[in-house]
Design a binder for these strands. Sequence first.
RNA 1: GCUCAUGUAGCUCAGUGGUAGAGCACCUCCUUGGUAAGGAGGAGGUCACCGGUUCAAGUCCGGUCAUGAGCUCCA
Length: 634
Amino acid sequence: MELTITIPEIGEKQFEPGITPAEILRTIENKLLSLKSIAAEFNGKMIDLKTPLKEDGELIYHSFETEKGKEVYWHSAAHIMAEAVKELYPQVKVTIGPAIDEGFYYDFDKNEPFSEEELAAIETKMKELIKSKLPFERKELSHQEAIDFFKGLEEDYKIELINEMPDNEKISVYTHNKFSDLCRGPHIPYPAKIKAVKLLKSSGAYWRGDENNKMLYRIYGIAYPNKKELREYLTELEERKKRDHRRLGKELDLYSINDDIGPGLVLWHPKGALIRHLIESYWKEEHLNAGYDLINTPHIGKAELWKTSGHIDFYNESMFAPIEVEGNEYYLKPMNCPFHIAVYNSSKHSYRELPVRYAELGTVYRYERSGVLHGLMRVRGFTQDDAHIICTKEQLYEEVENLLIFSIRLLKHFGFEDLQLYLATKPEKCVGECEAWDAASESLETALKNQNMHYEIDEGGGAFYGPKIDIKIKDALSRSWQCTTIQFDFNLPDRFGMEYTGADNKSHRPYMVHRALLGSLERFFGTLIEYHGGDFPFWLTPVQVMLIPVSDATAHYAERVRSKLRKAGFRAEADLRSEKVGYKIREAELKKIPYMAIVGPREEEENTVSLRKRKEGDLGSFSFNETIYKLSRQ
RNA sequence: GCUCAUGUAGCUCAGUGGUAGAGCACCUCCUUGGUAAGGAGGAGGUCACCGGUUCAAGUCCGGUCAUGAGCUCCA
């Protein structure tokens, strides 16, 4: 019986059972496919090009250009890196080494961390190993054989991994040259396919990410099928560094963090504070339009409050130590929820009033471990654009859907297009009834589906008190930061005894949705800086137009134009220093000011300005009205 | 918090045991110049902090603090 294999590029074809994807490639006339393929996917399962096919099915070839292909490629590079390390340091024990979004890493149990020189030596050894042109060989062992095999090699970590696998399952081992590694596979057929490799950095990492375990040393690397792509990637890394909000924050004088004040506490400088003001104004207006009530609450509250909320029991290690006043303990608030609930509970509510939406730009303080602080992205004092929606079960879906639409609209207004959405569902340990969880999860998922948004499900990733939707934005180093979070809370309404009177004249417990759309102003600002590389959208840019007189003789004219522009609602400054035009233009360009208006005797006489757009250059002469028109269309 | 690295002028950085440096920024003066750096001069540092070794420490050693890359956690 011949097998029927469907290949997207080729169509349906018949083959002898046991034929491999590599052999099939030799029978078909598609040189490009043959040349590029590094692994295959058969009926949805990734396999080696050398894996014999035993049933009918669909065969997809993967090259470095597909996501899955890249993963295989980088995983193979990680294997070669481990081999190089074992060649250079036979006493080192290998652990795990997966492909990641950009490249791969491998964790090693070694006494000393890897130095720069060692990294270079490992890279050189990798290149040698790649040149050898030996193939990757797959072997399948029984559970016991695998344990014996790795015991012989004294690879304790591998044994630990095998012990956790079901013992009736075959265990695959890939060997290249003298180095064998426990590995599910697949691998590229020959390491020689790796044409360019670079080890980027090394750092400590706990075995299995658990700080109770031994600290291992991790090496990160990247590999490409040609040198040009590697060069491009390295250039891209340099470009990303230039967008880093910590660098731009200094260069553009937006904010600082001062040792004398404390780590993770942000000082917003005038230009940063102006942007924050614009964000806040826009945010408040939008919230009022969307039916929210703005409230304000204090920064500290009594210990009893945080006992009731459960924060002292469950969140204590993230809270600053209490302050004692008149025999009472007060805590800096790590969240705004109890205060919002107190506002709600200050009076009785009828179902007719719901939904109630309380919004606040609420500043909270959290004790974050020193090692995790990061510029504006991870701080100890930050202002959440927080709100709590208190509603009935019937109102749930509409509220959630509106929230999602609202959130995405806000983010898009700031220029964000590339968003990652996650739906986090019920974890093992949780509070609240199943029915409530189901209703809430369903409303979240339906909202996502109805918006046609691409999202991923984070199974069991919800908080213990409710499911949630998170929206993340990537920073300049490709790390994702959570901004929007829309989460249900089945815990606090119970703890604080929230109620409303229903149409049946009975008391009911409302549903509560806790949400932050920008997340925190600090983190949001950080992502905003990086996303735009400091070139903020025109409406947010601190100085929109810089007036540049050609000489002191036209300084007065420059000031007059500046005043007129300000009256017209634009943020205009004038550079009146005794410097040459070229110098002032250069400075304005570096400060990322979008428009420059150069004025000399000619402009003064004609009552015009010579407009110049950042990065583009001279736009020509414009009358005042034309200038206003041009700017207002930004 | 853990591992490693780093900490010198406002910023970016040089300085490998023997009198603290550069460029930019800043101040003063000259220059009034037409689309990305005009010229001269000046001021500015307890070399993160504390301790140790040494005749002598920015430099070597230890500790503390901070920052960075990760681990973990989260807005």
